[in-house]
Design a protein around this nucleic acid. Structure first.
Lengths: 199, 199
DNA sequence: CTCCTTGTTGGACGATCGTACAACAACTGC
DNA sequence: GCAGTTGTTGTACGATCGTCCAACAAGGAG
């Protein structure tokens, strides 16, 4: 025994490892199990280190929200980058990616629910949520514009697609037995086709 | 001072008052603030009484889930009962009711999120969730059948509408500034019209 | 080699958690 | 009136929470 038990890390790397440990704990245990001690164990560090890098556990969770949000965006970007430049194909790729791992994952939903559960109590989390979703819809709007959706319908169309995909994603992760990812994809694709061909 | 500080209640009424106090605490504080003591204060009773009526706080929260689910169903039923027997009018009433109080209410969402956050950790809550949503979709399916949706499309159509309404309801409660209840209603109504007229 | 800065540890602290339980108040049957 | 039953209270207990901080380890500057 008597391992080193002490290892110094690059500050940014340590911050990141704490954030990702928080994401893993949130995914596995939900918000109820995300204690400073559990996070520290998951990250393999001492509990006191959390206070050294973040102003309390709330700031750590907020940083985790931002990080996980970025990761989701990156996964969607990667899925869309796999197709060509055809906007319609990019839209389909975005929908398809929403219902397969790593997006469709009960652990990711548990993490996301933990963030939602803090929106009411913590204004900082609420502001972060508004930022993330606004950016999300803004990107969807530019994609829809490339598909030929008129400026007047742009905003509501983006809201509709976001809501449908979110609702399907939510229930798919909550109780995967109720329908399959393929069915979710079919529903969303059909809906988008109806919206785009209605013009 | 020296109020009675002791009042005996009908067992069922006491159970119900504990359940509704739990719902109020969940709505105001989220799952993090739903402690036995906070619930007891809200209900105006002693903390020890919770253990007398429920096998721990988890059972109380599960009972609250069932109760709130019933209340939501009752509100939707009431909205649909206000219309005639025309199935399409009932469907529109159901959608409209989803985006105004008491359904569209940040407090109700906070309560619902608290339940979602327990689905992963507590199998009893997961089973309850499956029951509630299955019943929800079953009722929607019968309504859609009356609207003339074919048996083959029934299941996926119900899933699609549930997902869209849930997604709109979720974001409307989470950040009411992003769109108005009227816009949510318009989106959902248009979507339903597209689904029903596509046959 | 020595000092100094700094990442890191591990435990102490008070608060709060869920639960259990003895004492007490009200109602019932007699 | 007088026991017996039962709803109710208040508190005590151990566990766990977030935060804080003195002590320690590692690396760089002189």
């Amino acid at each position: 025994m008597s391992q080193p038990a002490f290892s110094r890390a690059e500050p940014d790397a340590r911050r990141l490892s704490l954030i990702e440990a928080t994401a893993r704990v949130l995914a596995a245990e939900g918000v109820g199990g995300a204690s400073v001690r559990a996070i520290a164990v998951e990250a393999g560090v001492s509990p006191g280190l959390v206070g050294h890098y973040f102003d309390g556990v709330d700031a750590l969770i907020a940083a985790t929200y931002a990080r996980v949000g970025e990761r989701v965006n990156a996964a969607l970007e990667a899925a869309m980058a796999g197709t060509g430049d055809d906007p319609r194909a990019r839209l389909d790729a975005y929908v398809t990616a929403s219902f397969v791992p790593p997006i469709a994952d009960p652990g990711l939903l548990a993490t996301w629910i933990a963030f939602w559960s803090l929106v009411k109590a913590k204004p900082a989390i609420a502001a972060l949520h508004d930022d993330i979703y606004a950016a999300y819809r803004r990107e969807l709007e530019t994609l829809l514009a490339e598909c030929g959706v008129g400026p007047a319908d742009l905003r509501l169309t983006a809201i509709a697609i976001t809501a449908l995909v979110d609702g399907l994603w939510l229930e798919l992760c909550l109780s995967p037995a109720s329908f399959t990812p393929e069915e979710a994809r079919a529903i969303a694709t059909r809906h988008i086709a109806a919206l785009l061909d209605a013009r």
